[in-house]
């Protein structure tokens, strides 16, 4: 180990070596580890106003986690069905959104990597990226207007005679799923694009030459090759969708809550940071466990994602 460090400093020089080492450590510690440790600590403590932090009343407790599971001490239900239901629906909806994105993005990524040539391909990439210069809030509100009962989509469908009265896309969460699917589309396309692009074209042609129809070429040659990219994209989209706040807040139907909205409520409206932390951590851990489980099922190693 010590030879490794000696070699490291010899290669990079003392000043640069120390800077990189320090920067990485500060990044890890201040940006990632410390805040999460704070959250963890908070989630196990009683909810007291800031002046009393560190005093005798600021003690350790499991009440916030208990609340998520069983609800209020005086509750009549045996479980906190309301919050747990929101939690379950959020995870399922995030899986759904991830799946939609995968179905949309794989063909696009493949097209960009192996079919589109030169200027046309660049134009497509530009037209994917540039719309994301529009900020998230504006985009969400635009979707809300577009999907509204008097919005352009309802107008068009009614004009075409497909609908005879406006359909409530907002209440039925169509707007929400569309908004979420669109929000993270680039995070799905680019990892898949990178993976697919590195596939030797000859392999596709070889499969075709041996008589394989297009679907088998994808199933046996392209998708296995793109698996790390697909995993990487799916993981990111899933994590970010499950943790999204603005889109559910704006586009969600009146009856559907996103779990992050509960977290937000505890932090802001109810001034219960401790409970908010507990909820947020449960979401984080659940997402990580879910992703690791999926990776186990699809036989992807963690290291492959980073490729």
């Amino acid at each position: 180990m010590s030879t490794y460090w000696k070699d490291y400093f010899r290669r990079n020089g003392m000043a640069l070596g120390l800077f990189v080492l320090l920067a990485v450590m500060v990044w890890m510690l201040v940006m990632i580890i410390l805040p999460q440790l704070y959250m963890l600590d908070f989630s196990f403590r009683t909810n007291v106003p800031p002046p009393q932090w560190g005093t005798d009343t600021h003690t350790y407790t499991l009440e916030h986690y208990r609340y998520l599971l069983y609800g209020n001490v005086n509750a009549t239900e045996s479980f906190n069905y309301l919050d747990l239901g929101v939690f379950g629906r959020t995870i399922i909806a995030a899986v759904f959104v991830t799946f939609i994105d995968l179905c949309l993005c794989y063909p696009v990524a493949y097209y960009l990597a192996h079919v589109a040539k030169g200027g046309w391909g660049r134009l497509m990439v530009m037209s994917l990226i540039v719309p994301f210069w529009v900020n998230e809030l504006l985009r969400a509100f635009a979707f809300k207007v577009m999907f509204g009962t008097g919005g352009v989509i309802n107008d068009a469908l009614m004009w075409l005679g497909i609908l005879d009265q406006p359909y409530d896309f907002i209440r039925e969460n169509v707007a929400l799923y569309s908004g979420l699917s669109y929000a993270y589309i680039l995070l799905m396309i680019f990892p898949i694009y990178n993976a697919v692009e590195s596939l030797d074209r000859n392999q596709i042609e070889a499969a075709r030459d041996m008589g394989a129809p297009w679907w088998r070429i994808h199933w046996r040659v392209v998708i296995p090759h793109a698996k790390p990219g697909i995993t990487s994209g799916s993981t990111m989209v899933f994590m970010l969708t499950a943790g999204a706040l603005a889109a559910p807040q704006i586009l969600g139907g009146p009856s559907s809550l996103w779990f992050t909205q509960l977290v937000y409520k505890w932090f802001n409206n109810s001034a219960n940071w401790a409970r908010g932390s507990a909820y947020a951590l449960v979401l984080l851990v659940a997402c990580i466990v879910f992703v690791l489980l999926m990776m186990r099922i699809f036989k992807v190693k963690l290291g492959e994602i980073a490729r």
């Binding site: 030797d200 000859n202 392999q203 042609e205 070889a206 008589g211 129809p213």
Partner: peptide, 14 residues
């Protein structure tokens, strides 16, 4: 190519 009675061996084998 998938319907022809030919098989191609690529330069890089593929």
């Amino acid at each position: 190519p998938n319907k022809r009675p030919t098989a191609l061996i690529f330069q890089n084998l593929a």
